[in-house]
Amino acid sequence: MLSVKSLDVFYGMFQALWDVTVDVEKGQIVSILGANGAGKSTLLKTIVGLMKASSGSIRFDGQQINHLEPHEIVNLGISLVPEGRRIFSSLTVLENLLIGSYTPKARPHRREILDTIFQLFPPLKERRKVIGTNLSGGEQQMLAIGRALMSQPRLIIFDEISLGLSPLVVTMLYEAIRKIGREGVTVILVEQDVKRSLEAASLAYILQEGRVSLKGDPKRFTDNEVKEAYFGL
């Protein structure tokens, strides 16, 4: 479904990704791990079009997407739940959700999608008229996920969703992610919380200093393998 091949990405002179290759099959939950600065966010930004690769290719359902603008990529069916949630601070909860259905493809279906999101996250329905950033951290994360689902993505990417949230809330969010996966949406999880994200995933990539240091079925990883791939120890 998503195939990233030999990607090199630069911030000015600094090379953030080196020859990164990642393959995601339809219906999988794929986990991408790595320490701070390992290049996870750069990889995501490049996939959704916010950054441009200097070489390599990204294909989505066979179509080359690395030269497309972010708004075109969303319309193809890739949606990102950004790190830090990035709720729009002058929009209400409902408006935050509705702007998620901005793409021409999603607009006609906004009512049905809104209903399924309110079923998945009931607190959002209750607080739909409140300004989005006035919600609690957990509710804001639900809102960010709901907003990303509003575009009816076929691939949804979660960037650091457990950051700063209580374990109880995180458990609940992971339950929602599994539910989303069962609906047939392909999921990429990017996390620093190694244990949780490896449990949820059927395939994992570990990044270290901009390179893929380990890939495979996380159930077969040994603790030492993970440590070495993660920290380079």
Binding site: H71, N75, P82, R86, E95, Y102, R147
Partner: peptide, 23 residues
């Protein structure tokens, strides 16, 4: 939609692009 897009872009330009807004 255009009104929401204008307000959202003022709040956060790059996140608004991720919503499909041609900013």
């Amino acid at each position: 939609y255009l009104g929401w897009a204008i307000r959202a872009s003022g709040d956060d330009l790059s996140t608004s692009k991720l919503m499909g807004v041609n900013t």
